[in-house]
Simulated assay, not measured.
Amino acid sequence: MGHLKDMVGANVAELVVVRHGETTWNATDRLQGQAESDLTEEGVKQAQAVASRLAKTAKHISAVYSSDLRRASETARIIADAIGCPNVTEMESLRERHLGNLQGLARAEAHLVEPEAFKASISSDPDESIPGGGESLNQLHLRSKHALENIARNHLGQRVVVISHGAVLRALYVHAKGCQPAGRVRNTSINVFRISASNDWSLSLWGDVNHLQGTNLLRASQRGDEMR
């Protein structure tokens, strides 16, 4: 990533969006959705690594936002402490996709235990919701888009850090690029979006995990990422 530019244009907000650190359910390949699980020891170290990097390279951060799910808010507080930001604003709208009846299941057994929910989760129909209170892709995409645009509207001319989840990041990529990203969204990857006052989106950095290079934390970062 190097050093981000010191200044952000007056009519643009720069949002440094980071996926949370590895969790106990990531490590055991269990589907989380909006259920709670804690950061592993590796997940805490990943969060500390990305926090150190942002403290050195991302200057003039105005605020830190986070999903209110524990794995994201814990990652956010580690980052906020490192960059000297006193508060983390938690937002329900930054949560992971709700996976309905799939939440808590081992990924390998999901298609056997909840076949209808599993089928809905990988459906090509963007309006098909997952049985058990789960979201459709369109619901996820609209929620994620509106969350980031609301943050941007309040921080034009500023840089903010946002901690969220794999499926949310995929949705944000679609809004910025018009297609699905390839590969997994790694834990504590850095992704930089710019949103203008007129809600024009651009993506200047995607999937950067240079802060994990040369450590076993890089291997751990490949786990999870929901249904992908």
Score class of each variant (00 low, 15 high):
Arg228Cys: 13
Gln46Trp: 00
Leu69Ile: 06
Asp125Met: 08
Met91Pro: 12
Gly157Thr: 00
Ala120Trp: 11
His3Trp: 01
Val161Asn: 10
Leu112Ala: 13
Arg30Lys: 12
Asn26Leu: 00
Thr28His: 06
Thr40Val: 03
Gly104Leu: 05
His20Trp: 04
Asp208Val: 02
Arg194Gly: 07
Ile163Met: 07
Val160Asp: 05
Glu22Tyr: 03
Glu135Arg: 04
Val161Lys: 10
Val50His: 07
Leu203Trp: 00
Ala10Gly: 06
Glu92Ser: 15
Val185Pro: 03
Val12Tyr: 07
Gly134Arg: 00
Ser62Val: 03
Gln180Pro: 15
Leu218Cys: 00
Leu148Asn: 02
Lys56Gly: 10
Gly84Asn: 05
Val160Pro: 07
Ser136Thr: 04
Leu99Arg: 01
Pro131Ser: 09
Ser93Thr: 12
Ser73His: 12
Glu109Ala: 12
Ile122Gln: 08
Ser66Asp: 05
Ile195Glu: 04
Val192Pro: 04
Asp29Trp: 02
Val50Asn: 06
Ile130Leu: 06
Glu96His: 09
Ala10Asn: 12
Ile190Ser: 05
Leu112Asp: 03
Asp127Arg: 13
Arg223Lys: 15
Ala182Tyr: 13
Arg30Gln: 08
Asn210Lys: 14
Lys119Ala: 15
Met91Leu: 14
Gly134Glu: 04
Glu41Leu: 10
Thr57Ser: 12
Ala117Pro: 09
Tyr65Cys: 02
Leu94Met: 00
Leu102Asp: 02
Asp29Arg: 07
Leu99Cys: 01
Gln103Tyr: 10
Val16Tyr: 10
Gly2Lys: 09
Met227Cys: 10
Asp81Lys: 14
Lys119Met: 12
Arg107Thr: 14
Cys85Tyr: 03
Leu105Arg: 04
Glu14Asn: 04
Arg159Gly: 01
Asn154Ala: 14
Asn26Met: 01
Arg159Gln: 13
Leu205Cys: 08
Ile83Trp: 11
Ser66Pro: 09
His165Glu: 08
Ser67Pro: 13
Ile190Lys: 02
Ser124Thr: 12
Glu14Gln: 11
Glu36Arg: 10
Thr89Pro: 12
Gln34Thr: 14
Trp206Ser: 10
Ser67Cys: 06
Gly207Gln: 08
Asn191Trp: 05
Val192Ile: 14
His141Met: 15
His141Gly: 02
Cys179Met: 15
Arg19Gly: 09
Met1Arg: 14
Phe118Tyr: 12
Gln32Asn: 12
Gln103Phe: 01
His175Arg: 13
Gln180Gly: 15
Leu212Glu: 06
Asp81Ile: 05
Glu22Ser: 02
Ser121Ile: 10
Cys85Ser: 14
Val8Thr: 04
Glu36Ile: 12
Pro115Asn: 00
Gly214Arg: 02
Leu142Trp: 02
His146Tyr: 15
Gly21Trp: 11
Arg194Glu: 15
Asn26Phe: 04
